[in-house]
């Protein structure tokens, strides 16, 4: 059994961007420019997501003359479910934190 670690903020940003339009295939460099993430960070993130089965990759099938086909990425169904469950747990944690802030602090009893 592997331990499930909370993804980094950048990984979460990538996951949410991909989950926003799950059927759409995206280019790596376009994700970099859209999300403001450096290329050197983006590819390791994509590699890790693919290693975990959360991302699928494929080559462009529509040939454009004069340039090689580019790699495309989108979330797998597992990846989409992961983002959903992650957002749910984050929202629950956020609610719990807000409630604990609103709860009145216990008063120190005095004699």
């Amino acid at each position: 059994m592997t331990r499930s670690r909370r993804p980094s903020a950048q990984t979460l940003t990538v996951l949410r961007a991909l989950a926003a339009a799950p059927a759409r295939w995206r280019h790596g460099y376009d994700l970099c420019t859209e999300l403001g993430i450096q290329f050197g960070s983006m590819y390791p993130i994509l590699m890790r997501l693919a290693d975990r089965g959360l991302l699928e990759a494929d080559w462009e099938t529509d040939r454009v003359p004069g340039r090689p086909p580019r790699h495309l990425y989108r979330l797998t169904s597992t990846g989409l479910a992961y983002v959903t469950s992650l957002d749910t747990s984050l929202a629950a944690e956020s609610d719990a934190a807000a409630q604990s802030r609103r709860r009145p602090r216990p008063q120190l009893g005095g004699a």
């Binding site: 790596g28 290329f39 050197g40 983006m42």
Partner: peptide
């Protein structure tokens, strides 16, 4: 993934952008 990085170069315009892209590829 290496082939994907090389193929992605066609979309990167401008000298500064290409150098940043190369630095990212080297880091990866």
């Amino acid at each position: 993934w290496g082939e994907a990085m090389v193929a992605e170069l066609v979309a990167v315009r401008g000298t500064g952008q290409r150098w940043r892209f190369a630095a990212g590829a080297l880091r990866t």
